[in-house]
Design a protein around this nucleic acid. Sequence first.
RNA 1: GGCCCCUUGGUCAAGCGGUUAAGACAUCGCCCUUUCACGGCGAUAACGGGAGUUCGAUUCUCCCAGGGGUCACCA
Length: 488
Amino acid sequence: MVRVRFAPSPTGNVHVGSLRTALYNYLFAKKQKGDFLLRLEDTDRTRLHEGAADNLLKALYDTGVIPDEGLVLDEDGNQAQKGDVGPYIQSERLELYQHYIKQLLDDGKAYYCFCTKERLDDLREHQKAVGETPRYDGHCRDLSQEEIQRRIDAGEPYVIRLKLPENKEITFSDTVRGDVTINTADLDDQVLIKADGFPTYHFAVVVDDHLMGITHVIRGEEWLPSTPKHVYLYECFGWDAPQYVHLPNILNADHKKLSKRQGDVAVGDFLDKGYLPEALVNFLALLGWSPEDEREIMTLSEMVDAFDITKVHRSGAVFDREKLDWMNGQYIKAMDDEALAERIAPYFDDENIDHDTLVQYASLIKERIACLSQAPDSVKEILNGDFDWPAEGEAYDILHADTVPILYNALYEKLTGESDWNAENIQGHIKAIQKEHKKEGVKGKALYMPIRLMLTGVMHGPDLALIMSVLGKDECLKRLRRFHDEIL
RNA sequence: GGCCCCUUGGUCAAGCGGUUAAGACAUCGCCCUUUCACGGCGAUAACGGGAGUUCGAUUCUCCCAGGGGUCACCA
């Protein structure tokens, strides 16, 4: 039975890269009919962030990447832990780490280290200055039992380090990268337990992944260089290591790691902006993986069916915001007006607009916006009545053509008489005008464009009758009168 | 700098010894349309370099170059 986990630390907002990692774990688990767990790695007390766990859960549930086990949301939407191998929050597992570190200590696989921060800093600085790779020098590796006891009793702060064998090649297999070999000579005696008694990531992941029965570790490639330490720990305990899958990074356009400097990176930011969660997830899934066929627009469950972890790309993928826009637009266009009206409603919050109007707005902008937050501006751009008619250029010429007065009179009269104001009837009037005044040149572009200009001031926009319908009779007539007074 | 990983068009990516080297985004045309947008059609555009292996390399091997990651009592 496949069991995978997403194990972020609650340090702030959820990065889209993290979401993708979670997503791949989820897709793999579901494809293999296994479980996807969420574990919180909160061993760094200095970086804890208020509400981070809530953010995390919200991002996951909003996007449908929902954990089967571990930290979850209960029926009431409250944080809860679910499963038999908890707790799923590392700070609640301290006794466990104590137990296992003792075993390592007893076996001589780990040792106490009393080196001060200052000594370590000096050491590192010196090594750098001499051009050496910064590394722990093993100062406390061989302290006598007596000295250790004495210093502990004296209350000296200490950490516990992994005693790495010297010059040993450690090889592990990675699903996307194949066999990777690293020599312990290039590795540090990693701190396993910090001075505050908390485990470091390196120790906690191994203990937890083993105890939780994790079969596949799917994580970012930044973990690749430290994986040998983890593999060695499994060896020390006599446990089977999981299968590793290191995912490529998501990059900025400059091929650097995706960072806040160049736009949004938090899942919440994208959702707030009006990127649909299903579009974001779809887009993210395709960064580093693609299905066998040529589909690009896929639901989560379609992705599950098509997902193949062995087809994950090896190299980093640039986060192309233009393509995200396109994809989001595809999702928006695929929605019906009612559904879209509901989704854009929050963005009109301050304006108190009724549902029917919202539906009309939806039909107006559906094919013009890339994300939901553009809705108000887009509507405003189309319906804005506070404009001046152009004083020059093609638009000016159109509005000052000889046929415009004829058109104006006919239009004003017909619209005034219309009692059932809808797009179809409006279109009928325009057609009728064309029929009656065709011989005077009021037809085609010379018919539609002046009307569009009279009513909106600009030469482009959605279907004219549709705009007029949404504008309403009073507003249309008002604009026509203003045109008459100011221009005609 | 040491170590590790990566390398097909501007971007995401098919490809897994023999192909006219897919497709998508973006760009540029044309078409559709009263306009814009949508949509349709088409165009431009790629195997980092060098050695091998092979009848034949984008596909296999090695070297180089470039890019990235990592070298914390952060994850």
